[in-house]
Every structure is written in structure tokens, then in C-alpha cells.
């Protein structure tokens, strides 16, 4: 029987208010160079931070311990994310949070590993000064926020490069449109300026002055209209780029 199998059998016997899509299991912390009371304090701070994450239904410590005890042995020591992800699935959890509480170098800190049942994994750390009670909660929350979004994790794993292309394209096209619009605007202004000075090029046209003047006027108006359209398109593309950028934020 694989190490995961007893956990799966146990899962069938355990009732929990959380559904599989939102259940988060936080495994009791390991500790290094830190008294157990301090490690427990840091674990509780992390539990509170996990519970505050969006779409997270944190299993109580008692339930997690009961399930682990019921499984008859400890969680197998996985060597890779795939194995840990399988453990998360076996526990019926969307995420599995592990932590090591450390007390090295005169400082308390926590190293967290958040494993998604879908196979992705992220790591975070935070320091928690013993002299500032309550600070651990804030730092745990901040550390978790950096790794909690499944989209962020997946992107970091699968799309190390080339992400957020749409806003870049929109901004590029918008910038080009704005530049062209400014160019047409300047040309229009130049035409207007020339015509305002005794008819510009049409001053020597003689009898065809009126036709020349009308033609130049039409040309200037077209330039102004094109400029306005391009500036508008550029502004819209820029705004679209900003919206898509914000939309893709984790």
C-alpha cells in the first residue's frame, strides 16, 4: 500500500465542514533550534493568517491531528512537489501548508511550503520577533499573500517568461497611435498656420486662389480629424492596457 493510501481510507471516515475545493490542511510545524512553545506560537499565527486567505477553509488543528493519528503513521517525507501534491489530494485538501519554525541566529522565523493539490508549489518565509507580539500574524499574512493565489503559482511554474503580453501589446499599439495622432495634429496646426498668413501657398495662385484655399483647408481639417481619431484610439488602447494589466494582477 502506498503512503497515500491510508490517508485516503481515513479521509472517507472523516467528516468536515470544508469542501474539497476550499479545504486547507496545515500540518503541525516542524521546529529547529526553537522551543516547542515558540514554534506553536508561530504555527498559530500562521493558522490565523491561512484562515484569512480568500477561499480558504482551514481544517482545525485537532481534526488534522486526529486524521494524522488515525492514519497510523506520520506523513511520508516527500522529496518532490508531485508527492506532496498527492498527499494534499489524499487529505482531501486544495492546499497543504507545511512549515518549519526556526530559532537560528537569535531570530525566530518560519519557512513555509504551500502545495496545491493540482501540482504547483510555492515557498515563503517570514521573521517573527519575539519582542513584538502580534507582529507574527501580520508577517505571516504578508508572506502567505505572496504565494496564495493559485494563478500566481501556476504562472510562476509554467510561464516564467512572456506573461502579461496583452497589456504590453495594447500599450504598444496605444503609444504608436498617440504618436501618430500627435504628428497629424502638428501637421494640421502647420497647415492652419500657413493658411492664416495671407493664404500660404495659395497667395500666388491668382484666380484659382479660392479652389486652392478650399483644398488646403480640407487638407488641414482631415489632418486634424485623423489626429483626433488617433489620439482617441491611443487613449482607448492605453486604458485597455491598464485594465488588462490590473485584471492579470494576482
Amino acid at each position: 500500500m502506498t503512503p497515500v493510501a491510508p490517508l485516503m481510507l481515513l479521509l472517507l471516515r472523516v467528516t468536515s465542514p470544508c469542501d474539497t475545493g476550499t479545504r486547507v490542511v496545515l500540518v503541525p510545524f516542524e521546529r529547529l533550534a526553537l522551543p516547542s512553545a515558540d514554534a506553536r506560537e508561530l504555527e498559530e499565527a500562521t493558522r490565523r493568517a491561512v484562515a484569512a486567505m480568500p477561499d480558504a477553509c482551514l481544517e482545525s488543528r485537532e481534526d488534522t491531528l486526529a486524521r494524522l493519528r488515525g492514519s497510523g503513521d506520520a506523513l511520508a517525507a516527500c522529496g518532490d512537489a508531485e508527492c506532496r501534491s498527492a498527499q494534499a489530494s489524499a487529505l482531501g485538501a486544495s492546499k497543504l501548508v507545511r512549515g518549519v519554525a526556526l530559532g537560528v541566529g537569535g531570530k525566530r522565523s518560519v519557512a513555509l511550503t504551500v502545495t496545491d493539490a493540482r501540482g504547483t508549489e510555492a515557498r515563503a518565509q517570514f521573521e517573527a520577533p519575539a519582542t513584538a507580539p502580534g507582529e507574527a500574524d501580520a508577517r505571516a499574512k504578508k508572506a502567505l499573500e505572496q504565494v496564495w493565489s493559485p494563478r500566481t503559482t501556476a504562472r510562476a511554474t509554467r510561464e516564467p517568461q512572456g506573461s502579461r503580453m496583452l497589456p504590453k501589446v495594447l500599450w504598444g499599439a496605444g503609444g504608436a497611435a498617440l504618436l501618430a495622432g500627435v504628428g497629424f495634429g502638428l501637421a494640421s496646426r502647420s497647415t492652419e498656420s500657413k493658411l492664416s498668413k495671407n493664404g500660404g501657398e495659395c497667395a500666388t495662385a491668382g484666380e484659382s486662389f479660392a479652389a486652392c484655399f478650399s483644398s488646403q483647408l480640407r487638407k488641414g481639417r482631415n489632418q486634424a480629424r485623423t489626429s483626433n481619431v488617433l489620439l482617441g484610439v491611443g487613449a482607448l488602447l492605453g486604458a485597455g492596457g491598464a485594465v488588462s494589466f490590473i485584471w492579470e494582477l494576482p
Partner: peptide
């Protein structure tokens, strides 16, 4: 004693890495 204050950094080799 690794708990002592020092000017050192630390490498954590986690469970599972052997």
C-alpha cells in the same frame, strides 16, 4: 549553538531532501 546571535546566514535542508 545555532541559536546564538551571530553574523551568520543559514541553509535549511528540509524534510524530504536526503
Amino acid at each position: 549553538d545555532l541559536k546564538d546571535v551571530s553574523s551568520l546566514g543559514y541553509l535549511l535542508v528540509p524534510t524530504g531532501l536526503s
